[in-house]
Design a protein around this nucleic acid. Structure first.
Length: 362
DNA sequence: GTAATCAGGACTC
DNA sequence: CAGGAGTCCTGATTAC
């Protein structure tokens, strides 16, 4: 037997947009974007996902809808229907689980599969990849891209290498040839800031990055530097493991335009808190820490939080605490507010299970 | 001195 | 012109 791991990273192509197109064949080959925000019809918000046709115009996730429109007057904007996309996602994840020994869902449209035990040679990789792609296409009418590698990071980078509907298989002996020419930003964990910091030192490609030692990178970037180094040399080795329980839960809403109307803001805070309580009770959680998040019209952000001595799932407790937090901040603030959010953390499962478990560990 | 808590930042999809 | 949800990390402060 072979002890080498074979990891798949499966990534759905333009997931939200593709779901909308599958629901409405008129949208095929059109520049479709799924938008999120306070009023997507009036271009208040951003692009969540752009179809591949839309991408031809330079439209991509994250840009303001108004900019997307300016790039292409023909864009079709669909408001996001996240709960529906979740249903679709669940169906897809069930398919992926079947084909893996170990499974890790990363987000609504991505997952890692450890398929080591099901692979003997290159052909069996191709067979398995094709089977997965076929079943997702037949059952859900959607395409995905798959990256295959000896660890999770290489699989992930590989899945993004050829899209849409691409397959990229990186054997151990091809790691350097694959990674070396890629821009550092390709590495998960290297975002805008880190890219800039590295660029200042003339580091643009992964091959530049690996000239530094691991400790150089750690002193430059902290703990993240160590991870980035391991990925760059192709030796990241984290296991494919099931997702743990959630650690926090919250909601954020933007106002259509910035406001200093305290009544309006507090109404929103209550609304958000209510939604949190609903969800948290439905999922049988309790929380101990509560936070508010405020983004001002100049885009600066303030967060405030406090913790209780005990866990709760009570609306009254939540609302009292978050309103108190808000009042403390807004006493000496005049800036207008653009977005407001409420979040709870330090979660535990409430009721039954907890007691049974604690008995076990007495 | 170390553990919790809090605030802010970076990052991901 | 700048959404929404979530995670991890860091540094400062406070608690034990």
């Amino acid at each position: 037997m072979n002890s080498k791991r074979v990891i798949f990273h499966v990534d759905m192509d333009a997931f939200y947009a593709s779901v909308e197109i599958r629901e409405n064949s008129d949208l095929e080959n059109k520049p479709v974007v799924v938008g999120v925000g306070p009023n997507v019809e009036k271009f208040k918000g951003v692009v969540s996902t752009a179809s591949y046709k839309a991408r031809e115009y330079g439209i991509k996730a994250g840009i303001p809808l108004i900019q997307a429109y300016n790039k292409c007057k023909d864009i079709v904007i669909m408001p996001a229907r996240i709960s529906y996309y979740k249903e679709v996602s669940n169906n897809i994840m069930e398919i992926l689980k079947k084909y893996s020994d170990k499974f890790q869902q990363i987000s609504i449209d991505e997952a890692y599969l450890d398929v080591s035990k099901r692979i003997e040679d290159y052909d069996s990789i191709e067979n398995l990849v094709n089977k997965i792609k076929e079943e997702i296409l037949n059952n859900e009418g959607l395409t995905c891209s798959i990256g295959v590698g000896p660890n999770k990071s290489i699989a992930k980078i590989a899945s993004g290498f050829k899209k849409p509907s691409g397959v990229t298989i990186i054997n151990s002996d091809k790691i350097r040839k694959f990674l070396d020419p890629l821009p550092v930003k390709t590495i998960p964990g290297v975002g805008k800031k880190t890219k800039k910091l590295l660029a200042k030192r003339g580091i643009e490609k992964i091959k530049d990055l690996i000239k530094l030692s691991k400790s150089d990178l750690i002193s430059l970037l902290g703990k993240a530097g160590g991870k980035i180094y391991d990925i760059a040399i192709g030796r990241e080795s984290s296991e494919v493991k099931p997702r743990g329980p959630r650690k926090s839960l919250g909601f954020i809403r933007s106002f259509e335009s910035s406001t200093d109307d305290i009544k309006k803001i507090k109404e929103k805070i209550k609304e958000l808190s209510k939604s949190i309580i609903k969800k948290i009770q439905a999922d049988d959680f309790q929380f101990r820490t509560m936070s508010i998040i405020i983004r001002f019209d100049d885009f600066s952000v303030i967060t405030r939080s406090n913790s209780l001595t005990h866990h709760t799932n009570d609306y009254k407790v939540l609302i009292k605490n978050v309103i108190d937090l808000f009042d403390k901040v807004y006493d000496n603030e005049k800036r207008k507010i653009k977005r407001i959010g409420v979040r709870v953390s330090n979660l535990t499962k409430s009721s039954l299970k907890q007691e049974i478990l604690s008995k076990y560990f007495e």
